[in-house]
Design a protein around this nucleic acid. Sequence first.
DNA 1: AGTGCCTACTTCCCATTGGAGAGTAACCCA
DNA 2: TGGGTTACTCTCCAATGGGAAGTAGGCACT
Lengths: 161, 161
Amino acid sequence: MPTMTAAQQRQQAKEQYDAFLAGCPSRQLLDRISDKWVALILAALGSDGPHPGEDCAGEPRSMRYSELSRRLAGVSQKMLTQTLRSLERDGLLTRTVTPTVPVTVTYELTELGLSLHETIRGIKRWAEAHMDEVLANREKYDAHASPERTTDSKDRAAGRR
Amino acid sequence: MPTMTAAQQRQQAKEQYDAFLAGCPSRQLLDRISDKWVALILAALGSDGPHPGEDCAGEPRSMRYSELSRRLAGVSQKMLTQTLRSLERDGLLTRTVTPTVPVTVTYELTELGLSLHETIRGIKRWAEAHMDEVLANREKYDAHASPERTTDSKDRAAGRR
DNA sequence: AGTGCCTACTTCCCATTGGAGAGTAACCCA
DNA sequence: TGGGTTACTCTCCAATGGGAAGTAGGCACT
């Protein structure tokens, strides 16, 4: 068996942490929320204008599947269905089927979903306020990293442990 | 040739939207933030206690690679490195290399990263406040969906298979 | 009656993503 | 000189997600 001392520690720490993770619902939710499309669907149903200028139209309303599909056109139908189902499962939105001429399925935020939407709006605001800053940093980083590697040669005098 | 009228509309809408997406930095940032590990790294560097009880230890501090790796043990080394790099690129944290005996690399939130962390903390709070509710909804949904399909008789018109 | 199109999915296929784990460079200690 | 450290990097492989096509129920038109 190959010796492992540091790796062992790491493994141990990991198992402890994993156990903690399994029991930590806030972490589970964080993962759920961190889904790429959840935020967009919430934003759409919460009636945030998709345009950065208008922060929010304010009134959340129900939308049909096709309407959502149009609004978040980047999403595949598969993902849209999947995400909507999981959000319904979590009680963040309701799915209503009306047997009209062509079936009509509408989705609407619940109170719970609405409260999450409010929270997420904070992130949207942050993004709008700081995106140019981030973009600038990104460009600077790319420009600097290409010619010379990330190698900083300035701190060369420190031999301690 | 196969005719497509509704599909055509959809495609058109999609292209319009995609064009919009490309030009919308807030959306780009949303995607970046929605990364599974970004929030966790920010939380770690922002010194949120990993335990749900203690909301936040308050003072953000710099951490070494190995320390982060231990703290977010669920993350693979690859992902950790990758995510840290992208966050550095965006100017959300700084990476400092000290050529000690074994190299020491420390990561620290910038002011920008700190402000984002504050925003994300709101989500953490939401998760902690509502997770039990979500969990309850989820169970109810699963319990109801298992014996009979989601089919509420009128769902039948929706055409599932 | 038959053809065609509608909505809201579902299914198949394949490219990309992410995890596990081993390997690497530079350096010290015994 | 061999082992051990940190912070990565690389390779292999399974899972995820997108694109496109298929499907079910049903009306409208001919």
